[in-house]
Amino acid sequence: MMGRGALTAWLRRLGGLVLIAALIATLRSVGLLDPERLVRGVRNLGIFARGLFPPDPSTLPTLGGAMLETIQIAFAGTAIGFVLALPLALLACPVLFGPPVTASVKLVLALVRTVPALFWAIVFVVAVGLGPAAGTLAVALYSLGYLGKLLYETFDGVDPEVVEAVRSVGCSRAQLARYAILPETANGILALLLFMFEYNVRASSIMGFVGAGGIGFYLLGYIQLLRYDLLLSGLLLTLAVVILIDWLSGLVRRMFLIPVTPAAPAE
């Protein structure tokens, strides 16, 4: 008769074996246990890496224009998404509205978020044609879904005492939002907006893969033409712009954001 401790140990061993078997089956299923394929992959990576260097800067003027378009897509998309997300986030704020309204708005935002940005780009390419307009609308919708959620969660975090104090003056819900919730969360709103813009610059750089404008169109083209040296130039340009925008965002944060718990001067 097997003891309880031995049974547990046996079950653990069995569980471990099942996990390992599942992992092996998965790797086999996705083709990662095919030695010939793996060897070919390593060889191709070598060719790819050799092809990247030295980067060819000859198309930088063209890429610069495309990068500017990428930034424009991110900027306009973030702005449109924010303008749409702000009122929806307020509608999802339980301090201001009851469960039927807040739950409905949260559901809509969740639905918008479910769809990846690239899929929205395909939808808008179909709707408005190839080019940055489709990319901008895709980024706007994607931003709406995420900013909406992040904003209503920020509004939920407002100090209840501030809400009670301002409510007690006899104001309306709109006034409560205008004079308590929005100013109290101004730091958070600005931080979210900057984060979303930075994120969208990265996201917009692949919008061109589906013809929705920006530098992605060229990057995909260089991959298809096996011009990895041109691709590396494009990637380095993107990296430089992302670093620059990170730095600028940090500058804006330092300029506008106030300390959360500043020390009060002595009496």
Binding site: L96, F97, G98, D159, E161, V162, V163, E164, A165, V166, R167, S168, V169, G170, C171, S172, R173, Y179, A180, P183, E184, A186, N187, I258
Partner: peptide, 22 residues
Amino acid sequence: RRRRLDPGVAYIPQHLGLVRNS
């Protein structure tokens, strides 16, 4: 929870409820 309250009754909470960013 969401109705307008009487402005004739002023209420100062323990931690004052001031909007710090304003």
